[in-house]
Computed example of a mutant assay.
Amino acid sequence: MAASGGSESGGGASAGTAIWGRAEQQDFRSRVRGCLLGGAVGDALGAGVEFDSLAEIRTKHGQQGVTDYVPAYGRRGAITDDTQMTLFTVDGLIRAHVRRDTGAWHPPTDVHAAYRRWSATQRDWGPDERRDEDGWLAREEWLYARRAPGNACLSGLADDRMGTLEKPKNPESKGCGTVMRSAPFGLLVGWEPQLVFQLAVECAAQTHGHPTGYLAAGAFAAIVHALARGEALDTAVQRALVQLAARPGHEETTEALKQALGAVRQGMPSPDRVEALGEGWTAEEALSIGVYCALVAEDVRHGLLLAVNHGGDSDSTGSVCGNLLGAIHGETALPPGWVAEIEGRASILELADDFAMEMTQGPALHGPAAASPAWLSRYPRA
């Protein structure tokens, strides 16, 4: 796949250029759509059973567990904070690339600003008080809904100080709130893998400061990155393990990924085998379960149902699995009935297409000398 440009997560960006062919652009857009929609579908499948044990799931929904959306938050197909934060990650990454025209280039700052806009949706009644410089996503009324957000995400974004690796927010927290929002970093296909990993790590430390919390996010982003470039999932996991090995405090994340790989060889997939990997409340467990279910998936439907039918954080493990399967297969592989019913589908597709267009045709949309007024209205430089 052609690349649109490399970068660094801190200062000192290097902007490469490459020509995207039409077929490559279409393939990339399909993977972006698949990743974001797939994550939303997995999130929604798990939302109604997030706090239930496997026994409770089977009692309520039959021996096979959930096989379709079940009502959550007053409707079928409802998404949770996992998808909300993923969308704001995308928004922040687009804004970072647009702001590069001003000479400002520090993507963690732009992602942090986007997460702060998400945080406002958890406090405010609606988008009435949003400013023009907040962009279009922050004015989407359907996102102003509190869907069991994690405490570390809320507290980490409660003030305007940005957590860093040197001084992270919530230094003891390794909740899955880092992993479930980090797939979009992997969609930066023009970046080098180590920079994708680093950016995801830096942005995870804004809310979760435990090494497992932020390294699991980096590993997930690196896996998605390899998939978006057309590599196989097992190869992508092996590449992530190599990157992890060089990082202090990697042991829990490394072991969790190795357990996911090992579980593939232990026999037919089952809820019991999923539960042997954990419950998904912590970052490394959510990553392990999501990776395992994607590795053994017969198709997207099978993988997603396996990922949510367990006693644990079903929406987060479903979201991670959906991100992976969507990045592998593209949006046309997703079960159309589930896609049709997903909350916010139009907005998710709109954002996915904007991200794909920015990554492949950004120089035609904006530059230091001239820019599309419509694009700057959507993604202000401020």
Rank of each mutant, 00 (worst) to 15 (best):
A72F: 07
Q64C: 08
S14R: 15
L45A: 12
Y115F: 13
Q64R: 12
A18T: 05
L37Y: 07
Q84C: 15
R116V: 11
V32C: 10
Q63H: 13
C35F: 09
T83F: 10
R22S: 14
L54C: 11
R116I: 12
R100M: 12
L93I: 02
T86I: 00
A55E: 15
L37K: 04
E50H: 06
V66S: 08
T17S: 10
T102N: 00
Y73M: 13
A23Y: 03
E50F: 05
K60W: 01
R22N: 14
Q84G: 06
R33H: 10
P71E: 15
G21P: 00
W20F: 10
R100K: 08
A113P: 00
G42P: 08
G92C: 08
G10F: 13
Q84N: 05
D91C: 02
D52P: 04
P107C: 09
A44F: 08
G42R: 03
R29V: 06
D43Y: 02
T17F: 07
G21H: 01
L36N: 00
R117K: 08
L36A: 01
F51P: 01
G38P: 04
K60Q: 10
A78K: 04
F51R: 14
T67Y: 06
T80V: 04
T67Q: 15
W105V: 04
F28Y: 13
V111Y: 05
G10L: 13
A44H: 00
L36K: 00
S9A: 14
Y69E: 07
H106G: 02
S9P: 15
V98G: 08
R116Y: 09
R116D: 09
Y73F: 14
G42H: 03
E56V: 04
V111K: 02
S9N: 01
T59Q: 14
V111A: 06
R33T: 07
P108Y: 12
R31G: 02
A18R: 01
E50S: 04
W20D: 10
I57Q: 11
A55L: 00
A23P: 00
G10N: 11
W20G: 03
I19M: 15
T17E: 13
D43R: 00
Y115C: 07
P107T: 07
S119Q: 14
G21R: 04
T83V: 05
E24D: 10
I79R: 13
A72N: 03
D82V: 01
A47H: 11
A96T: 02
G65C: 06
Y73I: 02
D110W: 00
R75V: 11
A120P: 07
T121S: 09
T86L: 05
I19D: 15
P108L: 08
E56K: 03
S53Y: 00
G65L: 01
A40K: 12
R29I: 03
P108I: 08
G11P: 13
G48H: 12
G12Q: 09
V41K: 05
D52G: 06
T109L: 10
D52V: 07
D82G: 09
I57E: 05
V49A: 15
G39P: 03
M85K: 07
V111E: 13
V32L: 11
L45E: 10
A72G: 03
A47M: 13
T86W: 02
T83C: 05
L54K: 09
F28N: 01
R95S: 14
D81W: 02
G62R: 05
L36F: 01
V70T: 06
D52I: 11
A55K: 08
T17V: 12
F28I: 06
V66I: 15
G62P: 09
I94K: 03
V111D: 09
R58Q: 14
